[in-house]
Computed example of a mutant assay.
Amino acid sequence: MKNKKIVFLSLLLLFGSLQPIFADAEDQESIELNAKIEIEKVSRNIINALRYGRFVLADTEWKKIQSDVYKTFAEYDYLNGSLLYSRMEWQEAKESLNRTLKKEPNHEAASFLLGMIYAQEDSWSEAKETWIETNQISPYNPFYHYNLGLAYFILKDYPNAITSLNKSLEYKANYNEAKLILAKTYLELNQVDKAKIELSSILEQDPKHIQASHLMGRVIYLMDKDPKKSLTYLKNPRALGWREKKVYARCYFEMRMWREAENLLRPIAYSPFADEYDQSFYLNLLLNLGFDERANDFFHFIQKQSQNESKIAEAYRMLLSSREGKDLLYHYFKLRY
């Protein structure tokens, strides 16, 4: 009997000693659960604030999750990367997003945003590789396929651009931005009829779509050689890409509107990637306008051009394409500056 009492007392003491351990474990689980709920709420608030350009609100929300308990979550690093991205602090943002992906490899938003940073840095090959991974994580998002298609277009990988852009349109049928890049891709492949189909579809939905209208004017000139009709599609000369500037300059020239043609062609003629046709065409324009002195200066400018300018021309063309691409990217949320 005495032994039984001793055993009973021992069990009571053991149970009493374990209670604080169980309590501590329960407290820790409760803390982590509450932290998870809080960081999810703050995450929604920060991302929505960034989308609408409410940067002060985003920073205020960020301050709510600065205790150590939040820093173990992948979402903490993602939010930090997002805030750094909005400030255009690319290197620090990349480091934070890579930490996110190390903790949670299938974090699609972090993967997508990492690709955005590479694109902003003109590193389109890295952007492409990153967005390939993003699309593997989330294969049904039209915006992910669109940005990947745009990266392929910038890199002149036109078959893969067409594949990705068609995937985007498969999941978002009336996605005009995807149709626009698809039309540009077809034009690069000299598939003018296919480009016209995509552009007609855009303009049917949105007759005021400036970029589609400008491209349609280029298509009309290539197909019909009708400068007058092509010029009806010109909405804003300042918004023209360099390829379209060449076409519309030719249209103005054929309509004997030489001053307008000269204004459009001038930046092309003086650029490193102007070919002999562009240069002779510009000389002809200057002479037609009676600008003999300017024609003479331009002739001497051509003669002084370096013989190794092919590399400069290609780099310049790539930078122009990259700038155009960044304007056309699908942005998840806004930049501060």
Rank of each mutant, 00 (worst) to 15 (best):
Q205F: 01
Q205L: 13
Q205K: 08
D206Y: 03
P207T: 06
H209M: 05
H209E: 05
Q211G: 02
A212Q: 02
H214G: 05
R218C: 03
L222K: 13
M223D: 01
K225G: 03
K225T: 09
K225C: 03
D226K: 08
K228F: 07
T232A: 06
L234Y: 01
P237H: 07
L240Q: 04
G241W: 07
W242P: 05
K245W: 04
V247E: 00
Y248W: 06
Y248H: 03
C251T: 08
C251Y: 02
F253S: 12
M257L: 15
E260R: 11
A261H: 04
N263C: 00
R266H: 07
P267W: 12
A269V: 11
S271Q: 13
A274C: 10
D278Q: 07
D278L: 09
Q279W: 04
S280F: 01
L283M: 13
L287C: 01
N288E: 07
N288D: 00
N288S: 12
F291R: 15
R294C: 00
A295D: 01
F299I: 11
F301L: 10
Q303H: 04
Q303W: 01
Q303G: 11
K304R: 15
Q307E: 14
Q307H: 10
Q307T: 15
E309S: 14
K311R: 14
K311L: 15
